[in-house]
Design a protein around this nucleic acid. Structure first.
Length: 572
DNA sequence: GCCGTTTTCGGCCCGACTGTTTTCAGTCG
């Protein structure tokens, strides 16, 4: 992956442009790999070229990298262009053309040389550059420290910032609607910058309020309809104000992904139309065909509305066309939550009573209380305390006639795949979630064995956050996904879709692979430790959509009787 | 470099902004 990204950067220099067809093809290949759950390093030439966006040439480069650890073409280009020139291209305002120009005319190939050239005022002598460009580049270099390396943020942090900005702008006079777009709306795991889309009577009033938000450390630009700011030390937030009649087109444009947009525009051209951020219009007359809602525009392109979480150009458009796209699962379809903690656990913050009250208020029909089991020493419950909790649940049941309460536990999958408590004690539970909380570094074979053992255990109904990843912190365990999906499919054990924005576990490519290759079932769970965390369910639902999971594969969408039958079948 | 119910060759998304220019190149999203 990293090697292919290098190939992209060097090819931009070789071609002297950032959008050559070759670099675009490479970029598409990288996207295709990222959204594929299989390990490309283990694949054959034929398997690789099967993947949409990867042809013979790229496939051979991947094979070459798998066997030799490098790509000859990249090594050749490194001789022509020092790696420091790639660094230069990261400076805002410097693209491949100007970086090549620097090398040719000033023999500048790195940041140090560039700084010296700026001091000597040499940049302004170059064709197409002047005094102002020189100043801008100088400024960009001084900011490079802040924006260097990986400036993408975790989705949890981005979401928080977006909501803060939105709540601040809501009170601005004349604001009609505010939505976040971009990768945040698509629920990407990491977010580059936050895109906020506003419809309002007056753009300038909104921009004015936006650039004066608390926490703004830099204003990168501002006009009457758009502005960019930096919040804190590195979060870029872009604002666009559009007329109400363009809301649908603008939302589509700013939601992306870029690849999805390009595919739609190509589709528009095939139909004698052109699509931009203002409208879908007839290419000859210029008449607007659709603009106000996303659904209108998709409809005029002969497509059903495609959920933002699916807009990655990984086959969603042809699936939509053929009617094979799963109906996007809706939060309203969920009838219960199957991974819930209470203050009985060391880390639960709301009482059992409060968690049940909130569940009823949200209209849940069933719930599994799953506090930590005893092997999680810090927070787990001893057998005695588990029995105490069971008695409390029994005493509370009459007060919740509309809610079926299952007494469960979040069991720990040990190093060897065993779980807490004795088999007889486990029999006493109504429900079991088993999760990995330790030994993240074992081999693929060992991790797979652990998961398979837990899947086969009759006390286990759901495997909680199966990879154990924490976004931005740890990658999660590596395991043989196909073996795990197959085992869970035949045993009837569901795989969790954990709703927490720091987990979103399983990942979307894994989910999609599981859906497409097996009949495995899923459970969308909040893993709530507080009543407020029930609303994380929306992220779990969005993650399911990202993984193309249809609602009939989700156990908490089942009718109560069917759900209880599934639980019982597993435990007998 | 990729891809194909218009094509195995000849196409490949669209616009804003900026700074540099007298009509446009480069960069960005």
């Amino acid at each position: 992956m990293a090697a292919l990204r290098e190939l992209i950067s060097y090819t931009k220099l070789e071609d002297g442009k950032s959008q050559s067809f070759r670099t675009r093809a490479y970029e598409k290949a990288v996207d295709a790999i990222a959204s594929n759950a299989s390990r490309v390093c283990d694949m054959t030439l034929a398997e690789l070229t099967e993947i949409d966006g990867i042809g013979d040439s790229t496939a051979r480069k991947i094979l070459e990298f798998s066997s030799t650890g490098e790509i000859a073409k990249v090594e050749r280009l490194k001789d022509r262009f020092p790696p420091s020139m790639i660094e230069l291209m990261r400076i805002p305002g410097l693209g491949p053309k100007r970086v090549l120009l620097l090398q040719d005319s000033l023999q500048v190939v790195d940041v140090e040389g560039l700084t010296r050239a700026i001091e000597k005022q040499q940049l302004r002598t170059l064709p197409g550059l002047g005094e102002k460009s020189e100043e801008k580049i100088a400024q960009a270099i001084s900011l490079l420290g802040l924006h260097s390396d990986d400036s993408r943020m975790e989705i949890a942090d981005a979401m928080e910032t977006a909501h803060r900005v939105i709540s601040e702008l809501e009170s601005v006079d004349g604001v009609l609607t505010i939505e976040y777009a971009g990768s945040l709306r698509r629920l990407s795991e990491t977010i580059g910058d936050i895109d906020i889309l506003v419809t309002a009577d007056s753009g300038s009033l909104v921009v004015e309020a936006f650039v004066n938000l608390p926490g703004v450390t830099a204003i990168l630009g501002s006009g009457t309809t758009k502005a960019s700011i930096v919040m804190g030390d590195r979060v870029q937030v872009d604002l666009r104000v559009v007329p109400t009649e363009s809301l649908g087109a603008a939302l589509m444009y700013f939601t992306g992904s870029k690849a999805h947009n390009i595919a739609l525009r190509t589709r528009a051209i095939e139909r004698g139309m052109t699509l931009n951020e203002y409208s879908l219009s007839d290419v000859n007359s210029g008449d607007v065909v659709a603009a106000k809602t996303e659904a209108d525009i998709y409809a005029k392109l002969d497509l059903p509305w495609i959920a933002p979480e699916l807009r990655e150009d990984t086959g969603e458009i042809s699936a939509a066309e053929n009617g094979t796209l799963p109906a996007p699962i809706a939060q309203e379809e969920l009838r219960g939550d199957l991974h819930v903690h209470t203050s009985w656990s060391g880390d639960g913050r709301s009482s059992l009573h409060d968690m049940l009250d909130a569940a009823v208020e949200l209209g849940m029909e069933f719930i599994a209380i799953t506090d930590h089991a005893e092997d999680l020493v810090m927070n787990g419950l001893s057998e005695e305390r588990m029995l105490g909790q069971r008695r409390e649940i029994e005493s509370l049941r009459p007060s919740y006639p509309t809610l079926t309460i299952l007494h469960g536990a979040e069991l720990n999958i040990g190093r060897d795949g065993s779980i807490d408590y004795s088999p007889t004690f486990l029999d006493g539970f109504d429900f079991g979630v088993a999760s990995i909380h330790s030994y993240f570094e074992l081999s693929v074979a060992e991790q797979t064995e652990r998961l398979l053992a837990a899947i086969e255990n009759p006390a286990v109904n759901v495997i909680g956050h199966p990879s154990g990843r924490m976004l931005g912190k740890r990658g999660g365990i590596e395991f043989d996904a196909d073996a795990v999906f197959a085992a869970a499919s035949s045993s009837g054990t569901a795989l969790e879709i954990n709703s927490h924005l720091k987990r979103l576990d399983l990942s979307a490519p894994m989910l999609r692979r599981a859906v497409e290759t097996t009949d495995v079932l899923f459970a969308i769970s909040t893993d709530a430790h507080h009543v407020s965390a029930y609303n994380h369910q929306r992220w779990g639902v969005a993650q399911a959509r990202r993984g193309w999971v249809p609602s009939h594969r989700v156990v908490n969408c089942l009718q109560l009787d069917d759900f209880l039958a599934w639980v019982g079948e597993r435990r007998n």
